[in-house]
Amino acid sequence: MKDGHDQDPPLVRLDAAELHFPVGGVVAQLQGRATVVKAVDGVTFELRRGESVGLLGESGCGKTSTGRMLVRLDKATGGRVEFDGEDVSGLTGDALKRFRSRVQLIFQNPFEALNPRFTIRDVLAEPLENARIPRAEHEERILRAMALVKLGDAGQFMDRYPHQLSGGQLQRIVMARALILEPEFVVADEPVSMLDVSVRAGVLNVFRDVRAQQGITAIYISHDLALVRYVCERTIVMYLGRIVEDGPTEDIVANPLHPYTQALVAAVPVPHPDQSHAPLPIGRGAPDPRNPPSGCTFRDRCPRAFDRCAVEAPGPTYVQNRIVHCHLHEPKT
């Protein structure tokens, strides 16, 4: 973010990061028909220590791929991904091990994220073992992590198996496991989308409060702006592998600048009867990531597209406290 006084170096930095996947089999490659899907196509942003940032977009926009690069589940195929000043792609051996204890991922589906044959105690001890934390400290750290996620009566859960817990309890265990090594950076990928509404709020509250208390830097990946707004002060909106808008969440909700963000904000249903049923300001048709439009990839659905949008991909424009990638917002020259 252009903020003027960001004297601290960023904790996380993406510089034109790319994640391209080849598609098509061997035959297609031999025939020269193989193409690439640009899941992430030149994404640049920085995270300051202690920031919580939402990565928002529709399925296929590259938000999960970006998250996977950040924790190095996937290596960037171009550009740079830095954590604490180091190129993440180059990490090996002990440096990679250290990275893995400083950075954690919280998965979407708590019902699949835990080994069904492990008791909750085993689930939580595993990362401690991997990080060679002395056995004597395990019990205390497990109890502390469980208190952190508000599973107060820890003794009641320790010897149970995942299938004996409810979804909300499981997702808290998943969070406790991610937090037990006291990471500096957490990437949470739609952590409540599999949970029922009545328990969702509890898990979100835990995530938000623990993050703030411990000063953890966090990326919250979601397609739901209402949830992102609840846990993130800043939001990065993605479309087809690229960033379209980046700024304070409240400003984006109140006054979205990019035409795509405008449609996204207008599309969020609200839980009370008096709401607009006006048609969305966006064309139909889902984009094909294998064959994105030239220039601005949003132009074929954009109600305000003009000649230039087909020719040239818009670069970043700073508007007030935001970055917008849209020709409409570029200064007139």
Binding site: V199, R200, E250
Partner: peptide, 23 residues
């Protein structure tokens, strides 16, 4: 009543979400 409290609402000021304890 509880479900209403547990739901984020983009049209209102950012408020607290309250879960319904238990299952």
């Amino acid at each position: 009543m509880g479900l209403r409290n547990a739901f984020p609402d983009l049209a209102s000021a950012a408020g607290e979400l309250t879960p319904i304890e238990g299952a």
